[in-house]
């Protein structure tokens, strides 16, 4: 009976072929890779990210500049160039150059210039920087603030939960946009508003408004996970609260958190654009899509491209993130419905 049977041989063969470990994250990555829309979204986002990074990158001797010009330089019709001047606000009037399909096109400026002679293409590219940063940084902040509060509230329960969640409810009860506008409008003109061209204040304002959703999400996850047997098992072997929270609760609540973060990114970008459009966001001359729409708005009837181009960028990024978010949701948990 020493001979090996066919089925044993099969088992042995399989042993060799399939000896590859798979975590749930890897499974999810596989599912994501098969989702065409999500991958398209990811490519668009990567494209914008690359443009943002390489718009003007100096690392030591290395200097890559994708943007044709400095976005704050003025190109006068007479060929004269002025850079670094701080011209606040835009004077109305026709642009010096139209986009390449327009009547008054200038081959130097592919997408034309704005009414004070700044290159639109360069401005769009530098705006991508602001949008990418404003998209990702606050979302990480939401996660840190909301995640910690949600985790603590969910795990400890009782009066800690009560205190934290009632506070959360109070913040949640304010209308988002109104709160944002109030914060921006009141603090924008102080010294805080000047840090990083207003970016820092935007981070703070967005975080104050939006951590709440994350806290509630994480708390909900933790509440349901807390009763799971594997958490009980961890307690029964003598694991402490920190270990239980970081090794057991957090990793298992991450899937919906990641999805929620993916959906938060475009919302943050959109909020920045809205605030900048209202003139209480990023401080000019730093270009941002919202600022550009604001500036182009005055000459919309004459040169709609000045509004439509940045608007198209915003729409494209939003759409890309939505596709990616949907893909992530399906990949991370095929059964989860948000």
């Amino acid at each position: 009976m020493a001979t090996i049977t066919a089925s044993q041989q099969r088992a042995l063969d399989m042993n060799v072929i399939t000896r590859k470990q798979r975590s749930l994250w890897m499974d999810a990555a596989d599912r994501l890779r098969r989702n065409k829309a999500a991958m398209a979204g990811l490519f668009v986002i990567l494209g914008f990210a690359l443009v943002a990074i390489f718009a003007d990158l100096r690392v030591g001797p290395l200097h890559i500049q994708l943007a044709p010009y400095d976005p704050t330089c003025y190109f006068y019709l007479n060929g004269h160039t002025a850079c670094g001047g701080d011209v606040v606000g835009a004077r109305s009037g026709p642009p010096t150059a139209n986009p390449f399909w327009g009547a008054n096109a200038d081959p130097r400026f592919l997408l034309g210039t704005d009414q004070i002679g700044r290159d639109i293409l360069s401005r769009l590219m530098f705006s991508a920087r602001i949008s990418m940063v404003i998209g990702f940084v606050p979302v990480v902040l939401y996660f840190l603030i909301g995640g910690t509060i949600g985790l603590a509230a969910g795990y400890y329960g009782g009066w800690i939960d009560n205190l934290l969640m009632r506070f959360t409810d109070i913040v949640y009860a304010f209308p988002d946009l109104l709160l944002l506008i109030i914060i921006m409008a009141t603090i924008r003109n102080t010294w805080i508003g000047d840090i990083m061209g207003g970016l820092f204040l935007m981070f703070i304002a967005l975080s104050i408004v939006n951590w709440v959703g994350m806290a509630r999400l994480v708390r909900g996850q933790v509440l349901s996970l807390r009763e799971k047997e594997f958490v009980e098992a961890a307690r029964s072997i003598g694991a402490g609260p920190v270990r239980i929270m970081t090794r057991h609760l957090l990793p298992n609540s991450l899937a919906p958190v990641i999805v929620s973060m993916a959906f938060s990114v475009p919302l943050a970008i959109f909020a920045e654009a809205s605030l900048s459009f209202l003139g209480i966001g990023i401080k000019p001359p730093t270009p941002s899509w919202g600022v550009m729409i604001n500036e182009g708005f005055v000459v919309f009837t004459g040169t709609p491209s000045m509004v439509l181009l940045p608007a198209a960028c915003i729409a494209l990024v939003m759409l890309a993130f939505t596709f990616l978010g949907d893909g992530l949701r399906d990949a991370l948990d095929p059964r989860m419905k948000l």
Partner: peptide, 24 residues
């Protein structure tokens, strides 16, 4: 109490729920 837990353990009902799915 944590020290005492070394001496008494538990085996759970649901083998699908009692193991953390994110750990090896």
């Amino acid at each position: 109490l944590r020290k005492m837990r070394r001496r008494m353990q538990m085996i759970f009902q649901d083998p699908y729920a009692s193991l953390n799915p994110r750990m090896t």
